[in-house]
Design a protein around this nucleic acid. Structure first.
Lengths: 338, 338
DNA sequence: CTGAAAGCGCTTACAG
DNA sequence: CTGAAAGCGCTTACAG
């Protein structure tokens, strides 16, 4: 590998001068600059980012630890995060926790060892000891989507409360009364909140949320499958199942189909997180859409603020209900919705 | 940040000794080891990976540049790559090219600047000058999914030829004769090959592939939409459209639905790449499945071989046809397929 | 405007 | 078994 020394030799200047032109420091003579640039070009020199990081104590890199790459919601989030980071001159390294706290911690540790400048995480649970340490250590950190109660760290997330209320109103209007939910892990805020918001919305309509109608999931497809099988085996199964994320909705569809039942004729289905495929599923799935792009961008902006010494505030954006036909339709609405 | 010096001071040994116990070098007295470990623990010391990399000239990091993170096929590939890399003691940094050669090059350059130990890429086109340079420079590199003609670099990919032949036989058996394809970019090998395999399979049945039945796509949804609109506007539209990846199939479904048409009644649809949602689309989509997990694992193994001085060979794995109902069904088959 | 020198945090021959 | 020292490739006061 050609190093700064080679460039200096070729240009007939010191490495200090080479470094200055590379970092566009003002005090370099046009002549020296020209010779350096020519040498860089001739040699195909590229500065060693590792050495530079060691010296400057900054890597211009952000770490992003997401709960599950296979979840299209997080994939999309990751894409926007990278895009915004790039616009600010940062690269991002993604770690996939697969919804497992130990794997999350493994990635956090690796990222810290690499001395990333800041950390973006959607915690896989309520806060491992490591996560608490990191927060206390002063490493710039921002939480996305999910947060850790009691941690004084900026949080960028969507609030699904209103959308869930709209969903329940929609279901109630359709005549459904037995409504069930497949929840995420109780240790995650999104796991809890969605259940609580659902429960409150139900009670506003005088409906209860019995324990049997709360399926315990982990945000992955298999758990949606199992929870749905549980519901279907009940003496009085729910009329509609609300899956707290899109993968559990996929699992629910699997289970319903395996039983030979049809949506929405035999049972309705709705999901948190909207994805392009929901338009083409059989039937199209009613879902709650998050402003994913905005979330990703806001999270990066908050983290960069933190890194550069400013004090960002938490950001909460509204989610919104997208009605399709998976919960049944009003007679008057038939054929009106694509 | 606590450094190796702090640990040495606390343990009452030299930094050399600390380094030795950290790297489990044999010649360290049990006593010294004990004191170092205690100091590491007390101080919460974590070695600085940046400094270590600079010194050892290895980062234990692999770069993975994929064509499009939003494509579930590549997301899955990335997940398996990370898993296998972790098993070999490597981290991976993912770069998303969004099917754009300049963005791909940006990531390759960044990755090289970070001195990753090896590069895994599914090229966004036929080979930018940078890619050719990298290959020639001797940087350990393995191509996945797509490759660059004329480049002497190991390639790990699936061969869809047989599966495409099976698909065409299936379509022919169903009575379809006017078969169209939405191709990927001509500059990609997967873009070309799938068209050529399709054309050959057609000719084996005495069918031609007219230019009007070749839609030019770019592996992303929008292009599938546009190509399908083109097909539907033809005086004699095709009976079946074969999309060369799952995102273009999504676009095709959008276009078909927007026209008020139904699959497979009005037009059939098949796709390269199988994804979980295809089971639940309306109708379930006949697709060609790649052995994604095996591809990801084999690619990492090949790259690690290269890095460690062994000489891996290219790997080609078969893809396979998964018949569902999006192309119509034999009368005898009705109701037999879930 | 320029260069010599120190130093970032490690690892690793070398000498003892 | 252990430590002093060199060096990886940079950047940046400091002096001129």
């Amino acid at each position: 590998m050609v190093s700064i020394k080679d460039v200096a030799a070729q240009a007939g200047v010191s490495v200090a001068t080479v470094s200055r032109v590379l970092n566009s420091h003002p005090s370099v003579s046009p002549d020296a600059r020209g010779r350096v640039l020519a040498a860089v070009d001739a040699l195909g020199y590229r500065p060693n980012a590792v050495a530079r990081s060691l010296r400057t104590d900054q890597t211009r890199t952000l770490g992003l630890v997401i709960s599950d790459v296979l979840n299209p919601y997080f994939t999309e989030l990751a894409r926007f995060v990278e895009e915004e980071a790039r616009a600010h001159g940062y690269s991002v390294i993604i770690g996939n926790a697969d919804e497992r706290p130990e794997l999350q911690d493994h990635h956090v540790r690796t990222l810290l060892d690499r001395r990333i400048d800041g950390l973006l995480v959607s915690p896989a649970d309520g806060g491992t000891p490591l996560m608490l340490d990191v927060a206390r250590s002063g490493t710039p950190m921002v939480l996305v989507d999910r947060w850790i109660p009691g941690l004084d760290v900026p949080v960028v997330r969507a609030d699904g409360r209103d959308a869930i209320r709209d969903l329940v109103a929609h279901l109630h209007g359709l005549g459904h009364r037995r409504l069930a939910i497949i929840a995420g892990p109780a240790a995650t805020t999104t796991g809890n909140e969605r259940v609580e918001a659902f429960r409150e919305a139900l009670s506003a309509h005088g409906l209860a949320l019995p324990d049997a109608y709360i399926g315990q999931g982990d945000f992955q497809a298999d758990s949606g499958r199992r929870a749905t099988e549980g519901f279907l085996a009940l003496p009085e199964p729910p009329e509609v199942v609300f899956a707290a994320d899109n993968l559990m909705a996929l699992g629910a569809l699997d289970a319903i189909r395996a039983r030979g039942l049809r949506v929405p004729r035999d049972i309705g289905l709705a999901a948190f997180d909207d994805i392009p495929w929901f338009v083409h599923t059989d039937p199209p799935v009613t879902a709650i859409a998050q402003p994913t792009g905005e979330l990703g961008r806001a999270a990066v902006r908050a983290l960069v603020d933190l890194i550069e010494g400013r004090s960002p505030r938490s950001v909460t954006l509204p989610a919104r209900l997208v009605v399709r036909s998976s919960c049944g339709e009003h007679a008057s609405n038939r054929r009106s919705n694509l």
